[in-house]
């Protein structure tokens, strides 16, 4: 029997239905962490990139990918980790950003990743906070409470208009 394996497009589609374990409203493909899907003979090779090096969700993500693909009948599967180029929030899809906002997490603002330079810090100190819009009321009058939020990828903010606290998906 010659096994006819599903096309890579089909596999991409399946993966677009696997939710992120921490933020279940967005999928793994929305998050931009699936780097490649390819067949090596009869083995399906899925290349995944970690978001943060210590993110505890990484193991769960691999397990979820494996479960989803096994359910679709994939028998031979290899998950490859790819570090380079490192994941960036710029790879979160437009659709993913909208889903984040609707869920109550302010999506990352492109090009604002911390570069750790004192110049950047000084500018920020002088100019106040980034204009992160409140995902609830849309106001840009918001204040950063902490650079680190409920997960490594988020910062804690508070809206100065509606007074609600919210998470901001920070840029890396």
């Amino acid at each position: 029997m010659t096994a006819t394996h599903p096309s890579t497009a089909e596999v991409w589609d399946w993966l677009s239905h696997v939710p992120d374990p921490e933020i279940p409203v967005i999928s793994l493909t929305d998050l931009g962490i699936i780097r490649d899907v390819a067949w090596d003979d009869e083995t399906l090779v899925v290349t995944v990139t970690p978001t943060y090096s210590g993110c505890p969700a990484t193991t769960i993500i691999n397990l979820d990918i494996e479960t989803a693909l096994r359910e679709r009948g994939v028998e031979k599967l290899t998950l490859k980790r790819q570090l380079s180029p490192p994941w960036t929030t710029d790879w979160i899809s437009a659709e993913g950003r909208e889903k984040l906002r609707a869920y109550g997490i302010a999506p990352p603002i492109d090009g604002t990743a911390a570069d750790g330079r004192i110049v950047a810090r000084a500018n920020r100190m002088a100019g106040g906070n980034l204009a992160v819009a409140c995902p609830r009321c849309g106001s840009t009058k918001t204040t950063r409470v902490s650079q680190f939020g409920s997960t490594p990828c988020k910062a804690s903010y508070r809206c100065d208009d509606c007074l609600e606290p919210f998470d901001y998906f920070k840029c890396i």
Partner: peptide, 21 residues
């Protein structure tokens, strides 16, 4: 080495920013 450093430096930029502040 280069790829681990590229990954880690993004995280450490946030550490430095926070501890400086």
């Amino acid at each position: 080495v280069a790829e681990i450093a590229a990954k880690a430096s993004k995280e450490v930029a946030y550490h430095l920013e926070r501890s400086s502040d």
